[in-house]
């Protein structure tokens, strides 16, 4: 496994704080995904994940947890992947 560079570590810490949300469900899903799934993402998907963290909590909850709304097209795959990787049936659990 590659050891993250200094800059990458800093970026990871920054993202880790962005995973602090107003809802426990999102705290849990996003921070676990960062821990378990982020490093397997392509460069483009990493940027997309960072962008996703800029979205509103209520929308993220609807897209990732309750599945009561369909996310905008660019997020579709990531919105499937996050609960699959960070949920309790994931291999990392």
């Amino acid at each position: 496994m590659n050891v993250p560079s200094h800059d990458e570590q800093e970026q990871l810490r920054r993202l880790r704080w962005q995973c602090r949300r107003g809802m426990l469900e999102l705290d849990h899903l996003l921070s676990r995904f960062l821990e378990l799934g982020y490093r397997d993402l392509s460069e483009a998907d990493r940027l997309l994940f960072a962008r996703l963290l800029g979205e509103q909590d209520q929308d993220l909850h609807n897209w990732l947890v309750s599945r009561s709304a369909i996310p905008p097209t660019p997020y579709l795959e990531l919105a499937e992947r996050i609960p699959a990787v960070a949920g309790e049936h994931s291999p990392g659990n």
């Binding site: 469900e25 309750s66 949920g87 309790e88 659990n93």
Partner: peptide, 14 residues
């Protein structure tokens, strides 16, 4: 009970 099923599947694995 919308949402309960999804929540339980994601966070309890059930």
């Amino acid at each position: 009970l919308p949402g309960i099923r999804e929540s339980s599947k994601i966070f309890a694995g059930a």
